[in-house]
Protein backbone atom coordinates (compact mmCIF):
# COMPACT_ATOMS: atom_id res chain seq x y z
CA UNK A 1 0.00 0.00 0.00
CA UNK A 2 1.36 3.37 -1.01
CA UNK A 3 -0.18 6.70 0.07
CA UNK A 4 1.12 9.88 -1.57
CA UNK A 5 0.76 13.39 -0.13
CA UNK A 6 0.57 15.97 -2.91
CA UNK A 7 -0.74 19.51 -3.27
CA UNK A 8 -0.06 21.40 -6.48
CA UNK A 9 0.76 24.50 -4.45
CA UNK A 10 3.86 24.45 -2.30
CA UNK A 11 3.91 25.17 1.41
CA UNK A 12 0.42 23.90 2.18
CA UNK A 13 1.62 21.36 4.73
CA UNK A 14 2.48 18.18 2.80
CA UNK A 15 5.54 17.48 4.93
CA UNK A 16 3.68 18.28 8.16
CA UNK A 17 0.87 15.86 7.26
CA UNK A 18 2.98 13.13 5.70
CA UNK A 19 5.54 12.98 8.53
CA UNK A 20 2.77 13.06 11.17
CA UNK A 21 0.86 10.34 9.30
CA UNK A 22 3.94 8.13 8.87
CA UNK A 23 4.92 8.65 12.52
CA UNK A 24 1.47 7.76 13.84
CA UNK A 25 1.20 4.76 11.52
CA UNK A 26 4.63 3.45 12.55
CA UNK A 27 3.72 3.84 16.23
CA UNK A 28 0.87 1.40 15.58
CA UNK A 29 2.78 -0.93 13.32
CA UNK A 30 6.49 -0.57 14.06
CA UNK A 31 8.79 -1.96 11.38
CA UNK A 32 6.10 -1.99 8.72
CA UNK A 33 6.01 1.65 7.62
CA UNK A 34 8.33 3.62 5.31
CA UNK A 35 8.38 7.38 4.78
CA UNK A 36 9.72 8.35 1.34
CA UNK A 37 10.81 11.95 0.76
CA UNK A 38 10.26 12.35 -2.98
CA UNK A 39 10.75 16.13 -2.96
CA UNK A 40 14.38 15.65 -3.98
CA UNK A 41 14.89 19.32 -4.87
CA UNK A 42 13.98 20.41 -1.36
CA UNK A 43 13.82 17.35 0.91
CA UNK A 44 12.61 18.35 4.38
CA UNK A 45 11.21 15.19 6.02
CA UNK A 46 14.47 14.45 7.86
CA UNK A 47 14.20 17.80 9.63
CA UNK A 48 11.11 16.48 11.43
CA UNK A 49 11.76 12.73 11.61
CA UNK A 50 15.42 12.94 12.71
CA UNK A 51 16.45 9.57 11.24
CA UNK A 52 19.33 7.60 12.73
CA UNK A 53 21.82 5.09 11.31
CA UNK A 54 21.71 6.96 8.03
CA UNK A 55 23.42 5.41 5.01
CA UNK A 56 23.97 7.55 1.92
CA UNK A 57 24.98 6.48 -1.58
CA UNK A 58 25.54 8.55 -4.71
CA UNK A 59 22.96 8.36 -7.49
CA UNK A 60 23.97 8.49 -11.15
CA UNK A 61 22.38 8.68 -14.58
CA UNK A 62 24.00 7.64 -17.88
CA UNK A 63 25.24 10.32 -20.27
CA UNK A 64 26.99 9.90 -23.62
CA UNK A 65 30.76 10.26 -23.87
CA UNK A 66 33.00 10.05 -26.90
CA UNK A 67 35.07 6.98 -27.74
CA UNK A 68 38.41 8.44 -28.81
CA UNK A 69 39.14 8.79 -32.50
CA UNK A 70 35.91 7.40 -33.88
CA UNK A 71 33.75 10.50 -34.48
CA UNK A 72 33.73 11.76 -38.06
CA UNK A 73 31.52 14.73 -37.20
CA UNK A 74 28.45 13.66 -39.20
CA UNK A 75 26.08 15.38 -36.75
CA UNK A 76 23.49 12.58 -36.62
CA UNK A 77 23.48 12.68 -32.82
CA UNK A 78 22.87 16.42 -32.72
CA UNK A 79 20.00 16.16 -35.19
CA UNK A 80 18.45 13.31 -33.23
CA UNK A 81 18.67 14.77 -29.72
CA UNK A 82 15.28 16.18 -28.71
CA UNK A 83 16.86 18.23 -25.92
CA UNK A 84 19.78 19.80 -27.80
CA UNK A 85 22.10 18.18 -25.29
CA UNK A 86 24.77 17.18 -27.79
CA UNK A 87 26.59 19.46 -30.20
CA UNK A 88 28.54 17.98 -33.10
CA UNK A 89 31.84 19.66 -33.87
CA UNK A 90 34.52 18.60 -36.34
CA UNK A 91 35.51 15.06 -35.34
CA UNK A 92 34.11 15.37 -31.83
CA UNK A 93 30.99 16.25 -29.87
CA UNK A 94 30.24 18.39 -26.89
CA UNK A 95 27.71 17.00 -24.40
CA UNK A 96 25.65 19.33 -22.19
CA UNK A 97 24.99 16.85 -19.36
CA UNK A 98 22.33 18.93 -17.53
CA UNK A 99 20.14 18.86 -20.64
CA UNK A 100 20.52 15.14 -21.39
CA UNK A 101 17.48 12.96 -20.65
CA UNK A 102 19.46 9.73 -21.02
CA UNK A 103 17.25 8.29 -23.77
CA UNK A 104 20.24 6.56 -25.38
CA UNK A 105 19.25 7.64 -28.89
CA UNK A 106 22.55 9.30 -29.79
CA UNK A 107 24.44 6.09 -29.00
CA UNK A 108 22.12 4.07 -31.24
CA UNK A 109 22.06 6.50 -34.14
CA UNK A 110 25.83 7.11 -34.38
CA UNK A 111 27.07 5.35 -37.56
CA UNK A 112 30.65 5.35 -36.26
CA UNK A 113 29.89 3.82 -32.84
CA UNK A 114 31.69 6.82 -31.46
CA UNK A 115 29.58 7.25 -28.32
CA UNK A 116 29.20 5.16 -25.22
CA UNK A 117 27.43 5.77 -21.93
CA UNK A 118 29.12 6.76 -18.73
CA UNK A 119 27.47 7.20 -15.36
CA UNK A 120 27.29 10.73 -14.03
CA UNK A 121 26.40 11.50 -10.43
CA UNK A 122 23.50 13.96 -9.93
CA UNK A 123 22.48 13.46 -6.32
CA UNK A 124 22.29 11.07 -3.41
CA UNK A 125 20.00 8.47 -1.90
CA UNK A 126 19.77 8.02 1.85
CA UNK A 127 17.99 5.69 4.18
CA UNK A 128 17.76 5.36 7.92
CA UNK A 129 15.28 4.64 10.69
CA UNK A 130 13.52 6.58 13.35
CA UNK A 131 11.61 4.78 16.10
CA UNK A 132 10.33 1.86 14.02
CA UNK A 133 9.80 3.99 10.90
CA UNK A 134 12.01 3.58 7.82
CA UNK A 135 13.11 6.85 6.20
CA UNK A 136 14.13 7.06 2.55
CA UNK A 137 15.19 10.28 0.91
CA UNK A 138 16.69 11.58 -2.31
CA UNK A 139 18.67 14.80 -2.64
CA UNK A 140 19.39 16.43 -5.98
CA UNK A 141 22.76 18.17 -6.23
CA UNK A 142 22.55 21.96 -6.47
CA UNK A 143 22.98 22.92 -10.13
CA UNK A 144 21.36 19.75 -11.52
CA UNK A 145 18.21 20.33 -13.56
CA UNK A 146 16.49 16.99 -13.89
CA UNK A 147 15.11 15.49 -10.71
CA UNK A 148 12.78 12.84 -12.18
CA UNK A 149 15.22 9.88 -12.27
CA UNK A 150 16.15 10.50 -8.64
CA UNK A 151 12.47 10.67 -7.62
CA UNK A 152 11.89 7.29 -9.27
CA UNK A 153 15.00 5.87 -7.60
CA UNK A 154 14.01 6.92 -4.09
CA UNK A 155 10.57 5.35 -4.57
CA UNK A 156 12.22 2.13 -5.74
CA UNK A 157 14.49 2.17 -2.71
CA UNK A 158 11.54 1.76 -0.32
CA UNK A 159 11.16 -1.79 0.99
CA UNK A 160 8.58 -3.88 -0.83
CA UNK A 161 5.49 -4.78 1.14
CA UNK A 162 5.82 -1.82 3.50
CA UNK A 163 3.10 0.73 4.09
CA UNK A 164 4.75 3.51 2.15
CA UNK A 165 4.05 7.20 2.73
CA UNK A 166 5.28 9.43 -0.10
CA UNK A 167 5.95 13.14 0.45
CA UNK A 168 5.62 14.56 -3.09
CA UNK A 169 7.22 17.68 -4.57
CA UNK A 170 4.90 20.61 -5.37
CA UNK A 171 3.55 21.24 -8.87
CA UNK A 172 1.84 19.10 -11.48
CA UNK A 173 4.65 18.24 -13.90
CA UNK A 174 7.27 15.54 -14.30
CA UNK A 175 8.73 15.25 -10.77
CA UNK A 176 5.20 14.95 -9.34
CA UNK A 177 4.24 12.35 -11.93
CA UNK A 178 7.28 10.31 -10.97
CA UNK A 179 6.40 10.64 -7.27
CA UNK A 180 2.79 9.51 -7.84
CA UNK A 181 3.85 6.41 -9.79
CA UNK A 182 2.46 3.32 -8.09
CA UNK A 183 0.42 5.27 -5.51
CA UNK A 184 -2.76 3.55 -4.35
CA UNK A 185 -4.20 6.68 -2.81
CA UNK A 186 -3.43 10.39 -2.84
CA UNK A 187 -4.00 12.84 -0.01
CA UNK A 188 -4.24 16.39 -1.37
CA UNK A 189 -3.16 18.95 1.22
CA UNK A 190 -4.63 22.35 0.51
CA UNK A 191 -5.42 25.71 2.08
CA UNK A 192 -8.47 27.99 1.73
CA UNK A 193 -6.84 30.74 -0.36
CA UNK A 194 -7.40 31.43 -4.06
CA UNK A 195 -3.91 30.02 -4.68
CA UNK A 196 -4.74 26.87 -2.76
CA UNK A 197 -7.99 26.51 -4.71
CA UNK A 198 -6.40 27.12 -8.11
CA UNK A 199 -3.63 24.61 -7.52
CA UNK A 200 -5.93 22.09 -5.84
CA UNK A 201 -8.02 22.08 -9.00
CA UNK A 202 -4.90 21.23 -11.03
CA UNK A 203 -3.96 18.49 -8.58
CA UNK A 204 -7.47 16.98 -8.76
CA UNK A 205 -7.25 16.98 -12.56
CA UNK A 206 -3.84 15.35 -12.38
CA UNK A 207 -5.20 12.59 -10.10
CA UNK A 208 -8.06 12.03 -12.56
CA UNK A 209 -5.71 11.81 -15.55
CA UNK A 210 -3.68 9.25 -13.64
CA UNK A 211 -6.76 7.44 -12.33
CA UNK A 212 -5.72 7.80 -8.69
CA UNK A 213 -8.28 7.85 -5.87
CA UNK A 214 -7.86 11.01 -3.83
CA UNK A 215 -9.07 12.78 -0.69
CA UNK A 216 -8.29 16.22 0.71
CA UNK A 217 -7.12 17.73 3.99
CA UNK A 218 -7.62 21.45 4.52
CA UNK A 219 -4.75 23.08 6.40
CA UNK A 220 -4.90 26.53 8.06
CA UNK A 221 -8.61 26.03 7.50
CA UNK A 222 -9.66 29.24 9.27
CA UNK A 223 -7.40 31.57 7.25
CA UNK A 224 -9.06 32.40 3.95
CA UNK A 225 -12.48 31.67 2.54
CA UNK A 226 -14.86 28.82 1.81
CA UNK A 227 -14.22 28.45 -1.92
CA UNK A 228 -12.04 25.38 -1.47
CA UNK A 229 -14.74 23.49 0.44
CA UNK A 230 -17.31 24.19 -2.28
CA UNK A 231 -14.88 23.10 -4.96
CA UNK A 232 -14.17 19.82 -3.17
CA UNK A 233 -17.90 19.16 -2.76
CA UNK A 234 -18.61 19.94 -6.42
CA UNK A 235 -15.88 17.55 -7.48
CA UNK A 236 -16.89 14.78 -5.05
CA UNK A 237 -13.52 14.84 -3.35
CA UNK A 238 -13.96 13.79 0.29
CA UNK A 239 -12.67 16.39 2.75
CA UNK A 240 -11.22 14.16 5.44
CA UNK A 241 -10.14 16.76 7.96
CA UNK A 242 -9.62 20.44 8.64
CA UNK A 243 -6.70 21.79 10.64
CA UNK A 244 -6.99 25.39 11.84
CA UNK A 245 -4.03 27.76 12.01
CA UNK A 246 -2.42 27.14 15.38
CA UNK A 247 0.66 28.87 16.71
CA UNK A 248 1.64 25.56 18.38
CA UNK A 249 1.93 24.00 14.92
CA UNK A 250 3.88 26.97 13.54
CA UNK A 251 6.28 26.86 16.50
CA UNK A 252 6.76 23.07 16.22
CA UNK A 253 7.39 23.37 12.48
CA UNK A 254 9.90 26.15 13.10
CA UNK A 255 11.74 23.89 15.54
CA UNK A 256 11.59 20.65 13.54
CA UNK A 257 9.07 18.77 15.67
CA UNK A 258 5.96 16.85 14.63
CA UNK A 259 3.27 18.41 16.82
CA UNK A 260 1.06 15.33 17.24
CA UNK A 261 1.03 15.88 20.99
CA UNK A 262 0.45 19.67 20.78
CA UNK A 263 -2.29 19.83 18.20
CA UNK A 264 -5.46 17.81 18.71
CA UNK A 265 -6.62 18.88 15.23
CA UNK A 266 -3.52 17.43 13.57
CA UNK A 267 -3.81 14.25 15.62
CA UNK A 268 -7.45 13.86 14.62
CA UNK A 269 -6.67 14.50 10.94
CA UNK A 270 -4.01 11.79 11.02
CA UNK A 271 -6.33 9.34 12.78
CA UNK A 272 -9.04 9.92 10.19
CA UNK A 273 -6.56 9.28 7.40
CA UNK A 274 -5.48 6.05 9.07
CA UNK A 275 -9.12 4.96 9.44
CA UNK A 276 -9.65 5.67 5.77
CA UNK A 277 -6.60 3.63 4.87
CA UNK A 278 -7.90 0.73 6.91
CA UNK A 279 -11.44 0.89 5.52
CA UNK A 280 -11.96 -1.88 2.96
CA UNK A 281 -13.38 0.21 0.11
CA UNK A 282 -11.30 3.30 0.64
CA UNK A 283 -12.16 6.61 -0.93
CA UNK A 284 -13.75 6.69 -4.35
Amino acid sequence: MRVAFASGKGGTGKTLLSTAFARALADREPGRVAYVDADVEEPNGHLFLHPEKVTTTRFSVPIPVLVDGRCRGCGACQRFCAWHAIIALRNRVMVLPELCHACGGCIQICPDRALREQMRSIGSLSFGTTGGLAWHSGRLDVGEARSTPLVSAVLESAPEGALTVVDCPPGTSCPVLAALEGADRVVLVTEPTPFGLHDLDLAIRLCRVLGLPHVAVLNRADLGDGGVRDHLAENDVPLVAEIPFEREIAVAVSEGRIPLADSPALKEAVERLIELLESPGGPS
Binding site: T15, E41, E42, N44, L140, P169
Partner: peptide, 28 residues
Protein backbone atom coordinates in the same frame (compact mmCIF):
# COMPACT_ATOMS: atom_id res chain seq x y z
CA UNK B 1 9.79 32.01 -9.57
CA UNK B 2 8.87 28.35 -9.26
CA UNK B 3 9.66 26.38 -6.09
CA UNK B 4 12.57 23.94 -5.95
CA UNK B 5 16.04 24.18 -7.45
CA UNK B 6 15.57 22.18 -10.67
CA UNK B 7 14.99 22.84 -14.34
CA UNK B 8 12.28 25.56 -14.29
CA UNK B 9 14.29 27.44 -11.64
CA UNK B 10 17.39 27.30 -13.84
CA UNK B 11 15.37 28.74 -16.72
CA UNK B 12 14.08 31.54 -14.48
CA UNK B 13 17.33 32.51 -12.75
CA UNK B 14 19.77 32.93 -15.64
CA UNK B 15 20.92 36.51 -16.30
CA UNK B 16 18.73 38.26 -13.72
CA UNK B 17 20.07 41.37 -11.97
CA UNK B 18 18.97 40.32 -8.50
CA UNK B 19 17.58 37.16 -6.93
CA UNK B 20 15.32 37.75 -3.95
CA UNK B 21 14.93 34.67 -1.78
CA UNK B 22 11.76 34.70 0.32
CA UNK B 23 12.05 32.46 3.32
CA UNK B 24 10.16 31.82 6.53
CA UNK B 25 11.48 31.01 9.99
CA UNK B 26 11.16 27.24 10.05
CA UNK B 27 13.66 24.41 9.76
CA UNK B 28 12.37 23.75 6.21
Amino acid sequence: GPPGIGCPVHAAIGGVDLVVAVTEPSVS
